[in-house]
Design a protein around this nucleic acid. Structure first.
Lengths: 338, 338
DNA sequence: CGCATGAGGTTTTACGTATAACGTCCTCTG
DNA sequence: CAGAGGACGTTATACGTAAAACCTCATGCG
């Protein structure tokens, strides 16, 4: 018996089954029909099972020149949202025999950091979200098939893009609030330079601006509950403020806004209506429950992976943004309901 | 010029620099001192840079017989906690030239699912959290070095374990509540068979039970806000209930308990003190802010990875649980403060 | 002078797999 | 009954890398 420390190879299986290594490869690769008899094939499979044989992926990858592994680049993983994106992408990948490796960029990727240094596996393609342009060009230089998530279709260096229909979500929020009678808006915006946030600002301004007698102020905050609380408190404390509707770039910012409102003695939604965007677990944990736009993160990841598979396959990925849905809960109501 | 579609190999670099492939390997592998002149080495590096050479990982892995890639098995990724574990593990891994591949087991791993099917990369080792025993033995059968997170040190088939000091956290919670004067406890327990939850129940019973005149009831719920709300509401609605302190197995359950309390008209903490465990973003988003036990997920991941690196290195991983910390906030106070 | 030593390389090999190219028989058909 | 082809394999090769083994000069030293 060979030393237990070294794993059996296809040659070991061949020897055990009394055939050549090539036959083992044919049988286990399911390419044996017409080449190997059914009884021999069964003998090979049995030997493989007995020995606990597992193909050496490194050797296979080398031989085939592909790895069936893709890289997913996300800003930070420690959020429900991107964890969901990963889960969706990984599920579709697994269905097609692919694996997904993560590259969570801690502080945005700069030229000094190499997205591939941490990806030990060789890669067949890349799905990237919200990346700095320099890292993007570094990837392009590698000639790897690339799909961009939530980024400007115009400025993506020709890469395929898969986007959530954020603009439509903001449109729904604006119309919901306008319909309730709100006229004075505050936009609590994420302090992050990313196309997905630019879209929010642009669409909100366009929708609200199309109605006479309205106003939209903007204040920026880092994406954290504390940061949002501070920014919202400062903006709302302004004595001249007549704001009745606070539109937040995401749910975390909205959670911060809740605390700001509480400290200022503003009741939600009587004195101030608040909306979020994401629909995290957070949204139903706070009181009142948050009116927000549901983004299906897993679906987003699934679409991203499907698009990449299409590119790898030489096909053209489907066009079209992923629909989002306004979920109305208790944090919005008519202004001045007191 | 070679077709742009095929990436340059070390042989291409060698040709460009006018040396042999071996020389390229020596220089780029930083093993050239005393074997190649400094000027030649520089010439090789320049050629590599010009061609945009990147070593083929599959070939390297095959040659070296190791991949510097480990698998992290987590119950679900879509939670702050396990996303944090990944982030910590990946950081330490990167520092040592390792990569981390994820295996998120959707519904607990059964024998039908193969933890390795989705891991395209060949693996050097495994870090596993809260796994079903059958998958565990499957992994053991592969002879891969294994580190278990938060699992029974006695029943881990001889694998190294890295644990958070959950018992101490529960102890701190119990003493905090006992010190405030609480005597009637309800334990809102996670409906998941896992060692880490068993520890909570055992320790709570031991601590509270050591004081005369106390009682602990238990009710179980799935780990979701809705499930927790339903279970807590049912348990608290019992007219004979004199419960003043509700100890939850994690923050998400606590968030559900908040909603149950609200619906029953119980004020927090005046009528009911509530504690959680995790210290997610959720904990400071709800009102009042949640008294909970802070688990440092990233640190947990770091320790797990360090332990695995030690095993891979033939060393013995450090012993000792990772300390946790009670964070007292507004959700706990003396009983009957009304 | 004779030979060890070391600098500066090159040639060769192995890692484990997938598959193209190549052999045997044996049977069927015209 | 010749030979075409199918059934059932085997042999040989390449993927790109790391590193062991080897080679060739100078130079130094006794």
């Amino acid at each position: 018996m060979a030393p237990a420390s070294t794993r059996p190879t296809s040659r070991d299986v061949a020897q055990a089954a009394g055939v050549s290594q090539a036959a083992v490869s044919l049988v286990l690769g399911d390419k044996w029909r017409g080449r190997v008899s059914a009884t021999t094939a069964e003998r090979v499979r049995e030997a493989a099972r007995d020995l606990g044989y597992r193909p050496n992926l490194a050797a296979r990858n080398l031989r085939l020149g592909r790895t069936r592994t893709v890289l997913l680049v996300v800003p930070v993983l420690t959020t429900e949202f991107f964890a969901g994106v990963y889960t969706g992408a990984a599920r579709v990948a697994a269905e097609h025999g692919f694996g997904v490796v993560l590259y969570p960029s801690p502080e945005g990727i700069g030229p000094a950091r190499d997205p591939f240094a941490s990806a030990q596996a060789a890669l067949d393609g890349v799905i990237a979200s919200s990346m700095a342009a320099d890292a993007l060009t570094a990837i392009r230089g590698d000639q790897l098939p690339l799909v961009m998530l939530d980024s400007d279709p115009e400025g993506s260096l020709g890469a395929a893009t898969v986007n959530l229909d954020i603009a439509d979500g903001v449109r729904q929020v604006a119309e919901h609030l306008l319909g309730l009678g709100h006229r004075d808006f505050l936009h609590l915006a994420a302090d992050v330079p990313s196309w997905t946030f630019e879209v929010r600002a642009r669409e909100l301004a366009a929708r609200v601006g199309s109605v006479a007698g309205t106003s939209v102020r903007t204040t920026r905050a880092p994406i954290s509950i504390e940061g949002a609380q501070a920014a919202a408190e400062a903006a709302l404390a302004d004595p001249g403020s007549r704001v009745t509707a606070l539109v937040c770039d995401d749910d975390k910012l909205a959670a911060g806004a809740y605390k700001a409102a509480r400290r200022l003695g503003l009741r939600i939604p009587d004195d101030l209506s608040i909306t979020g965007l994401d629909d995290l677990a957070l949204a139903t944990a706070i009181d009142p429950e948050l009116t927000t736009v549901r983004l299906d993160a897993e679906l987003f990841g699934e679409h991203g992976m499907r698009a990449l598979l299409a590119v790898l396959d030489g096909r053209v990925p489907e066009e079209g943004d992923i629909p989002v849905e306004l979920v109305v809960r208790g944090s919005t109501g008519p202004p001045g309901a007191a």
